[in-house]
Structures are given as structure tokens and as C-alpha cells.
């Protein structure tokens, strides 16, 4: 059989194994769930005021945004952290010592984190539709939109995670990335409609995929009438596809280059030599 096909399959297997490891480890699962749980609880407790101009609770409106934010934390940051940690413990070097191992490693990591992102999102969404009034789980379009938005969102954000994980030397330095991401959360209309921000901040928010992922998820889960709270009074599906698609194209063009450079540098005593 073609060795690349073998590696591809092995990558899928790796993704499945690592996804299974996370899902069966209570401690780790709680680690991934606490942040969105806290965010949702806070919005449930304090978000009972109405959205300006519409008869709809602020809390329910924020659910898709929180899920989008968490998808970025789980997928993008999770992948970046996994890459730095795997470099520290030699997992990456092991992949390099195996024929076509690097290809399988990257495929496995991406699939594992993508699976985890979807699983965490569903684990949060299912209770949320019972707790928050006004979400629309009964429509077919809800789930169709959710599926394509999430897929595009993952394609747009996971390569960024891989690049960050390759560029940053260790898990600690990766912590600095959290700051700009928190800033991004603030300008991406996660908790409150982006239309409340000044125009230039709206422009900044619309450059990055988090805003578009959130917008897409809102369009999936919220009643159509709520589009009036968005820019242009519209869910802007076409723009969502273009924006997320552009991030995906750039990410998929850059990530292999950066990952290859990272792999080339990988050697057993590399870190030891750098330290001493």
C-alpha cells in the first residue's frame, strides 16, 4: 500500500485514540468544560435583561457567542498547547523517527482536537437549549447551519493553532497568546452585540475568525428576527463563508511550511544544547 495512505490512516487512528483518551478522562474533560460552564452560568444569572430593541434575553443571545469563543479556546489553543507539550516530551521527535510519522502526527492532532471541539460544543449546547429560552433547536436549518459554520470555523482556526504551537517554544510562552485572544473576545461580539462597539473596533473584530464563527452560530441557533442586532441587520452568510474561507486558505498554505521548519529543527539534545 502507498506509504502516504498508510500514514493518513494512522493519523485518523491517532486522532481517534487521543480523542478517546480525553473523553474518558474526567479530570481533563472538566478542564475543557469549566470555562464555558462558568460563562453560561454567569450569562444565565445576569443576562435576563432584554437585548436593545428586541424582545429577547441577553443571556440566550450570548450562548452561541460563548460556544464560538470556547471553540477557539479548545481547538486553536488546545492544538497549540498540545504541539508545544509534545515537543517537550519527545512525542514529536518520535513522529520524526517514524517513516511518514510527522504527517500522521499532524493529522491525528488536528482530528483529535477538532473532535474534542465539536464534542465540547455539543455537551454545552444540549443543556443550554433547555436552560435558555428562545434558542431554536427544533429547526433543521439550525443543525445544517451549525454543521457548516463549525466545519468552516475549525478549518479557519486550527491551522492558526498549529502555527502558534510550532512558533512558540514552550507552553509557558504560549500563555502570552492568551492576552490578545482575550482582547479579541472583547471586540468580537461574544457576550454583547458587536453593533454596540465604535465603528473602528467593529472593523477590528471583523478581521478575525472568532467574530464570524460567533455570527454563524448565532444565525444557526437564534430566531431569524434577531439579525437586526447584527451589522447590516443580516446574518451575512456569504461574508461568513468568505471570511472564514480566507483564513482557512491562508492557514493551510502557511501551516505546513511552519510545521516542516519545526520538524526539521527537532532533535533529541536540541533543547539541552540550547539551554547549556
Amino acid at each position: 500500500m502507498n506509504p502516504r495512505v498508510v500514514a493518513l490512516r494512522a493519523g485518523v487512528r491517532r486522532g481517534r485514540i487521543e480523542f478517546g483518551q480525553t473523553m474518558t478522562n474526567a479530570g481533563e474533560l472538566i478542564g475543557w468544560l469549566w470555562l464555558p460552564v462558568v460563562a453560561l452560568v454567569v450569562m444565565y444569572a445576569f443576562g435576563d435583561g432584554p437585548l436593545p430593541g428586541v424582545d429577547f434575553s441577553l443571556g440566550a443571545q450570548s450562548v452561541p457567542g460563548i460556544l464560538a469563543m470556547n471553540a477557539v479556546f479548545t481547538g486553536l489553543m488546545g492544538l497549540a498547547m498540545a504541539l508545544t507539550m509534545d515537543r517537550e516530551d519527545g512525542t514529536l521527535l518520535r513522529a520524526k523517527a517514524t517513516p511518514n510519522g510527522m504527517l500522521a502526527y499532524v493529522i491525528g492532532k488536528v482530528l483529535g482536537k477538532a473532535g474534542l471541539t465539536v464534542a465540547v460544543l455539543l455537551l454545552m449546547l444540549l443543556p443550554a437549549v433547555f436552560v435558555f429560552d428562545g434558542l431554536e433547536p427544533g429547526r433543521v436549518s439550525t443543525w445544517v447551519t451549525l454543521a457548516w459554520v463549525l466545519l468552516l470555523g475549525l478549518l479557519a482556526t486550527l491551522p492558526i493553532g498549529a502555527i502558534l504551537g510550532a512558533v512558540f517554544g514552550n507552553a509557558q510562552s504560549l500563555g502570552f497568546v492568551m492576552l490578545p485572544i482575550m482582547g479579541l473576545v472583547a471586540v468580537s461580539g461574544v457576550f454583547y452585540p458587536i453593533t454596540a462597539l465604535p465603528g473602528w473596533l467593529q472593523a477590528v473584530g471583523q478581521v478575525f475568525p472568532l467574530y464570524w464563527l460567533g455570527l454563524g452560530l448565532r444565525s444557526a441557533m437564534l430566531p431569524d428576527a434577531l439579525a437586526v442586532a447584527e451589522i447590516g441587520d443580516s446574518w451575512r452568510h456569504l461574508e461568513t463563508v468568505v471570511a472564514l474561507g480566507a483564513w482557512a486558505v491562508v492557514g493551510f498554505a502557511l501551516a505546513p511550511v511552519v510545521l516542516r521548519r519545526m520538524a526539521r529543527r527537532e532533535s533529541g539534545s536540541g533543547r539541552a544544547a540550547a539551554v547549556s
Binding site: 498508510v6 485514540i17 487521543e18 483518551q21 519527545g90 518520535r94 517513516p99
Partner: peptide, 25 residues
């Protein structure tokens, strides 16, 4: 190599079986 700490969460048989696939071609 000198010190491996990788794949700590994998099981022994699982890892060896995973790795052997790469060599088959």
C-alpha cells in the same frame, strides 16, 4: 534516544501496533 517521555497516556500495545503500521509499506 536518550530519554523518551512521550505517549504517556497511550497503552503499550496500542502504541506499538500504531507504529508498526508505518513500516508495513
Amino acid at each position: 534516544l536518550q530519554s523518551w517521555r512521550d505517549h504517556g497516556r497511550w497503552r503499550v500495545r496500542e502504541l506499538l501496533s500504531y507504529l508498526s503500521a508505518f513500516y508495513e509499506p
